[in-house]
Design a protein around this nucleic acid. Structure first.
Lengths: 229, 229
DNA sequence: CAATCAAAGTGTTAAAAATACACATTAAGG
DNA sequence: CCTTAATGTGTATTTTTAACACTTTGATTG
């Protein structure tokens, strides 16, 4: 079966930069390509958009097919359509970025049909196509956005300590914060709910666990109060 | 002549939300559609991407073809690919927004082959397709971005008064500023060059004209100083 | 079970930035 | 020369940000 049009059309794909966080690093989920071009090279998960499929849905579908991840934070990044970016033909890709917490999505769980693995941002393999550019763009977007939208919580488990939260910001923004000032700021935002639970299995004083209060955040946004860290 | 592919492909277009500013309003440039669907309705300028053409280039080309505008500030906004947004078939559009100064691009100059006209944002006609949604998205992006990137200057002529600059921010952000505080802030940014010229033909004390110093801005950005108004 | 270790948790002071606020000056027009 | 309309300018107060160090807690070890 084939499809015929009056005018030539570029092919359309989605690609997704999935960020995850572990103790030391910000990481990206890559898959090893099973087919040409760039066979066996590492690449962003993604694939062709189907006719009748919403672009966002395509990104989610491809992500699940290739990495097993679903129901995660996903946001459009940019559309790249440089004619020569794919050696086969003109392929326009809609790039997304996603945030997951590595604890609930460990490296092994993702290694499904295709070979998938997490890489630290400062230790990346050579990437297929222009995926290195897209990844860089995604990293810049993450850095920019994390300051004024509470997307960082997507990288943490549901309950987390304030120290974990601080480390997250320090990793993404590549700067350190004063512990007391950081906590004061976070407290003033008034979007964290203090649980009555403590960290488990740590060989020192256990820290209190907090939870991001989504509904509280929505209320504050409606009131015109804007999140900024 | 026709083109055949193994898999069905959505069509790909670009659309552009062009903002302009006059004394009282923020305005948008629309064109009246000459063909079906939505014949005679107002719509965003835009059109189909050609194979081998960069997506950004397509937006610029269509904009010039339909409105005569060229060499203007243009930035990608988002890609919209809801299957039913075009009644003919699945059309994915890459939306852009552009900023021009209305003084140098008056309403009449744009009325080329197709019918084009500027509309105040609070007095829009019914728009074709989902263009009203795209326009709203562009307006939000403009509001968000104008605070921390000096894109507002794109809406002004090369030389402008501080009062004009203040009015611009007040119109876009829909709030008022104190004249003295506004000027203090602008002065501290240190990205305006004071010219030795004054406003012409005003029936009152003429205000001094300023110019946005692009190279100075680039230097400051490189030094990590970030613009914020 | 006392000592050690590692990180949790907590306030104050000084500096900088944001805000509130009003009047004299200038130039054109009648 | 008087009126009009908008330009241009400074200070005091409040709020926000930044700098800075020690006690508490609880598990581990000898």
């Amino acid at each position: 079966m084939s499809f015929t049009y009056d005018y030539a059309r570029p092919a359309l794909t989605t690609d997704c930069v999935v960020f995850g966080l572990d103790e030391e690093d910000l990481k990206v989920l890559l898959i090893q390509r099973a087919i040409k071009p760039f066979k066996d090279q590492w690449a962003l998960p993604g694939g062709f958009i189907q006719v009748g499929e919403d672009v966002d849905d395509c990104a989610r579908r491809e992500l699940e097919e290739e990495t097993g991840l679903k129901n995660i934070f996903l946001e459009q990044l940019a559309t790249v359509g440089t004619p020569k970016r794919d050696p086969r033909e003109h392929v326009v890709t809609v790039a997304y970025y996603a945030l997951v917490n590595l604890i609930e999505h460990p490296p092994t769980a993702a290694t499904d049909a295709k070979h998938a693995a997490w890489f630290a941002l400062d230790d990346l393999p050579k990437l297929a196509f222009d995926h290195a550019d897209i990844l860089k763009l995604a990293h810049e977007r993450l850095r920019g956005k994390v300051r004024y939208q509470p997307i960082g919580f997507e990288l943490l488990p549901e309950k987390f300590t304030l120290t974990e939260l601080q480390k997250l910001y320090e990793l993404i923004l590549e700067q350190t914060f004063d512990k007391r000032n950081f906590r004061k700021k976070v407290a003033k935002l008034d979007i964290l709910e203090e649980t009555d639970e403590l960290e488990q299995d740590v060989a020192r004083r256990a820290a209190r666990l907090y939870r991001f209060d989504r509904s509280r955040y929505r209320v504050l946004i409606k009131q015109g109060i804007n999140f900024e860290l």
